[in-house]
């Protein structure tokens, strides 16, 4: 009787572990596909990020800003004069 109980427990344990392995194995099997999809999406986003960064840096470069300024009609500063407003001046003081 005692041997039968022990044998039964072994069989039961083997069945339970087999079921667990089947369940988790099934879950992991499709994870590889998801990983592949996520990696593809990440690569696409990284690539788009690099392309946008390239555009941003080009537009915000001083070279481009100077060229755009000239097209808009801005000119190089030629005067070395400077207007300095001291604190004693009444200009733009609050009432």
């Amino acid at each position: 009787m005692k041997h039968a109980v022990i044998l039964g427990l072994f069989v039961l344990t083997a069945i339970v572990l087999s079921i667990v392995q089947i369940v988790f194995g099934t879950l992991y099997t499709t994870a590889g596909l998801e990983i592949s999809q996520i990696q593809t999406q990440k690569q696409a986003v990284d690539k788009e990020n690099m392309l946008l960064s390239e555009k941003l840096y080009t537009l915000s470069s001083l070279t481009n800003i100077e060229a755009s300024a000239k097209q808009l009609g801005f000119e190089d500063e030629t005067s070395k004069s400077m207007l300095v407003v001291t604190q004693n001046s009444a200009f733009a003081l609050k009432p």
């Binding site: 992991y28 994870a31 590889g32 596909l33 990983i35 592949s36």
Partner: peptide, 12 residues
């Protein structure tokens, strides 16, 4: 990779 060429998580 598995037979379809997809990465296998457990072996990554």
């Amino acid at each position: 990779h598995d037979a379809f060429g997809k990465p296998v998580l457990a072996k990554l």
